[in-house]
């Protein structure tokens, strides 16, 4: 993981000149968000990454209503290569790979967003409070973080899944989120710790502002791109963990996911039989989604950091 420093991102100084445009004039208080958006939409990295992720998301959301076959239907001839009827071919059992892919996108996004969100909320809350408050609270939270960190999360997930049984994607996402926050807490804590000693925090305190407001308005904005990066990694991590669980047969039983598709493809020796249309789309889908989020993040660093914006 590359450390994105909140204020000065070294190395990206030579960033694309396309983002170097005059700030829209007359944008004053309240225009901060508009201005960020203005620069975001002019940054090719943000744009490209965003379009890819959004494309997949839209496909996952609206795709199912245009499909003729359900993901598990035995719809056509087995092992058919891509054709007009079956854009991504069929499985060994004649199931429509495209239908599975579209359904898989949905649960993949769901598990990524939910799992990432759960971990992000827990990790950031603990990180902010521990880093800003310090002292005994910091020590207690640190202890909790370290305990969860040394618990072999995947093993616990396997046990939890095996005992409690996971029937739905949200449940799976929740379990994943609850075990993947510790490194977020540590990263956020150390960033908060270094920001806390800056004079602008003291100046906010001199303005009679409370802890919550300082964290929200002064500390967190300095870490936006960092937090986003964190979320990207959590998002990707949740997707991969979910896929691994699916792979060993502990996935949700009532849904299709990209991980489950790959697992089934491998299980039915699609690699062996040369059914590339079965395992390439889900693999490529996961790679593209996570990769695009990463590229977006690099671009967002330039957007959030005015120093990288202008020459």
């Amino acid at each position: 993981m590359t450390a994105t420093q909140p204020t000065t991102g070294p190395g990206t100084e030579t960033a694309d000149q396309a983002a170097v445009a005059a700030a829209p004039s007359g944008a004053r208080a309240g225009g901060d968000l508009r201005e960020t958006l203005y620069f975001a939409l002019r940054n090719p990295k943000v744009l490209v990454g965003g379009v890819v992720v959004l494309g997949f998301l839209v496909l996952g959301l609206v795709g199912p209503s245009f499909l003729r076959y359900a993901p598990m239907d035995y719809a056509g001839p087995p092992m058919a290569p891509p054709s007009a009827d079956f854009p991504l071919g069929t499985t060994t059992f004649g199931q429509d790979v495209f239908a599975q892919f579209v359904a898989g996108l949905r649960s993949t996004f769901l598990v990524g967003v939910l799992g990432g969100a759960v971990a992000a909320v827990i990790g950031m809350t603990i990180g902010f409070v521990a880093g800003y408050r310090g002292g005994l609270i910091d020590e207690l939270l640190n202890m909790l973080t370290n305990v969860v960190l040394v618990i072999p999360g995947f093993v616990v997930l396997v046990i939890l899944n095996a005992y409690l049984g996971v029937r739905s994607v949200p449940m799976q996402a929740l379990y994943i989120g609850v075990f993947s926050w510790p490194w977020v807490a540590r990263a956020v804590r150390s960033q908060t710790l270094s920001l806390r000693s800056r004079d602008f925090i003291d100046l906010a305190r001199l303005s009679g502002v409370g802890v919550g407001t300082i964290l929200r308005r002064e500390v967190a904005p300095n870490m936006y791109s960092y937090l986003f990066m964190t979320f990207v990694l959590l998002f990707g991590g949740s997707i991969l963990t979910a896929a691994s669980l699916d792979f060993i047969g502990l996935g949700p039983t009532n849904a299709m996911s990209l991980g489950l598709m790959m697992n089934q493809a491998v299980q039915w020796s699609a690699l062996h039989l040369g059914l590339w249309w079965w395992f390439v789309p889900p693999g490529l889908g996961i790679t593209l989604i996570v990769g695009s989020l990463y590229i977006m993040n690099v671009g967002l660093d330039e957007v959030f950091n005015p120093k990288l914006r202008e020459t």
Binding site: T7, A29, L203, R217, N222, F304, P306
Partner: peptide, 16 residues
Amino acid sequence: SSFNPIFKVDRTFETL
């Protein structure tokens, strides 16, 4: 270091 580097200086007054 007395100003939050990612915001315009006006914000300091706005906070007050």
